[in-house]
């Protein structure tokens, strides 16, 4: 049975990085509750194009929750009211008929708005380029028991590696801190033997780059973990603190 809802959308519109920006209100009738949030945005844009208006610019790519492109701060939460999903996997059944939905871009000094709902997340790439890699190729997937790795470490590394770099952690953090992102990237490599070799250098360089780019200081509120679509744990932040302090003390 198809279920349709009508919505009022308050959408942030901003022509460019220098523009002041403002909210525009749009009415949308008969949105299927089976459609995803981004499909709803597509319907809105189609309506805008048909009216001869400029469509709303927003980031999206794979639409299956693994690429990290989609963003959107919806009704006070990054990736909207559902838990542990990205905006592309949020469905309209999470909203009520007649509801007003406020849609904003990520807001943080580290993520300046490019246009409408799209922000510049190059800072994350710059942090990765500062050390989020292994310097030599470690080959393809090794044979199962070639390098013994404790199950706990393998699981924690995999959990940390599930970070898709969407930036929800920074968007929700009262301090605009990127610690959850950086800690996930440092952790998934530091936990495995291939990444351990460069662990100290990696922690120092990535933290230095994070600070240089103007992200805030973590105060352990834990909001990032709650809003992370992949449920990346702040235990990784403790690990990053440990790795960083160890590396600095060894110098």
């Amino acid at each position: 049975m198809e279920n349709n809802i009508s919505l009022t959308l308050k959408v942030w519109r901003q022509n460019g990085p220098k523009d002041k920006g403002r909210f525009e209100t749009y009415k949308l009738d008969k949105v299927s509750t089976d459609s995803s949030f981004l499909e709803m945005m597509d319907i809105l844009n189609e309506q805008l194009v048909n009216e001869g208006k400029e469509p709303v610019a927003f980031d999206h790519d794979c639409r299956e929750g693994i690429c990290g492109m989609c963003s959107l701060y919806i009704n006070g939460r990054p990736h909207g009211p559902d838990d542990d999903v990205t905006t592309c996997q949020l469905h309209m059944r999470k909203f009520k008929d007649g509801e007003t939905i406020t849609i904003e871009p990520w807001r943080s000094a580290g993520f300046p708005v490019i246009k409408d709902l799209i922000v510049n997340r190059n800072a994350f790439d710059t942090i990765i380029a500062a050390g989020g890699y292994t310097s030599v190729s470690t080959g393809g997937v090794p044979d199962a028991n070639a390098i013994p790795i404790p199950k706990v470490d393998a699981d924690e590394a995999m959990d940390a590696a599930s970070c898709i770099g969407c930036g929800a952690c920074v968007a929700t953090c009262k301090n605009g801190s990127a610690m959850l992102f950086v800690s996930a990237k440092v952790s998934h490599l530091a936990l495995l033997p291939q990444g351990k070799v460069e662990a100290a250098r990696r922690a120092k360089n990535m933290v230095a780059k994070m600070d240089e780019l103007g992200f805030g200081n973590c105060t352990n509120t834990g909001a990032c973990e709650v809003e992370c679509p992949k449920g990346v744990s702040i235990s990784n932040i403790a690990r990053l603190n440990r790795e960083f302090l160890k590396a600095k003390l060894a110098d």
Binding site: Y73, G76, T102, S108, A109, V113, C173, N175, G176
Partner: peptide, 11 residues
């Protein structure tokens, strides 16, 4: 780091 722009829909 949080920036000047605040979220209209709060937290």
């Amino acid at each position: 780091a949080r920036g000047n722009a605040k979220y209209a829909s709060g937290n």
